[in-house]
């Protein structure tokens, strides 16, 4: 009965997707790598507490767009971003915005699991430490435990918190990276193909985790797997050759897309 209720509520939420407020608004976002233009005036809004999937063939600009959302593109030489992206009411490319603070609000999980070659505990506690989120040992313990619980890793690692994070399996490492991102209490979590280096079982676990995280976080995920996009997301955006082709409710995208290119890509006719 309970299950039924939850499912029903979820469905209702999905159907009312269009009324969910925007967390991030991208307006006319263009990205240039030197002379080469990688994104063409993308207008894409990210809804709060929603999983938004970015799909499209390789080199279409979906990862580039993802990285503009927490200004990771800043670290690439001669990369230039134009247009406007806001997080709540703040223009994140405003010169007064502190990029360090922005990245604390917009966390990121990468394609390849990249734990620091330190202990599991240090991996998770690093973010809170540099952002001053905890002061005492007990507070750190608390954050580490809750983050690992949120990432569904607590039961597997609680007895070996001081062993190196690099000693975990690939799937566990990726969940450790998610725990690390969660530990700084971000508002948005960006995931760049988080499951592409994982086996199906680990992938299933991470997908389940994404599903759970949605209640507290806004999630943007880049994926190459149509099935994954269909499974985890409520909204899907399709990119092609640096343009945003279509953005819609996931159900609609996979059943009755507005754009022919989306239809072709989802059916596997190109990409």
């Amino acid at each position: 009965m309970n299950m039924m209720n939850e499912a029903a509520i979820e469905k209702a939420v999905d159907q009312k997707m269009n009324t969910v407020p925007y967390k991030m608004i991208g307006k006319d976002v263009s990205v240039y790598y030197g002379e080469k233009r990688a994104l063409f005036d993308v207008n894409l809004n990210i809804r709060e507490n929603t999983v938004t999937a970015l799909i499209g063939p390789s080199g279409c600009g979906k990862s580039t767009f993802l990285r503009t959302l927490n200004r990771m593109n800043d670290t690439i030489d001669n990369c230039r971003v134009t247009g406007k992206i806001t997080l709540d009411a703040d223009d994140i490319y405003d010169p007064n915005i502190d990029v360090v603070e922005l990245r604390a609000r917009v966390g990121m999980v990468f394609q390849k699991p990249n734990p620091f070659p330190k202990s599991i505990y240090e991996n998770v506690s690093y973010g809170p430490r540099i952002h001053g989120l905890a002061r005492t040992r007990a507070e750190f313990d608390e954050i580490v435990a809750s983050s690992l619980q949120k990432a569904g890793l607590w039961n597997e690692v609680k007895d070996r918190l001081h062993e190196p994070g690099t000693g975990l399996s690939g799937g566990q490492q990726q969940r450790l990276c998610i725990a690390r991102a969660v530990a700084v209490s971000p508002e948005v979590i960006l995931m760049d193909e988080p499951c592409s280096a994982l086996d199906p079982i680990a992938t299933a676990k991470v997908e389940e985790l994404i599903h759970e995280l949605r209640t507290n976080y806004t999630i943007v995920i880049v994926t190459h797997s149509m099935q994954q996009a269909a499974r985890v997301s409520q909204r899907t955006a399709m990119f092609h050759l640096g343009n945003l082709v279509e953005e819609n409710d996931t159900d609609k995208m996979f059943t009755n897309p507005d754009d022919q290119r989306t239809q072709d890509y989802i059916m596997g006719r190109f990409g």
Binding site: A104, G107, F110, Y126
Partner: peptide, 13 residues
């Protein structure tokens, strides 16, 4: 590895 730098920067270091 650049992934270590990306990880730290992505955390807001």
């Amino acid at each position: 590895p650049p992934s270590i730098r990306a990880a730290a920067l992505g955390l807001g270091a």
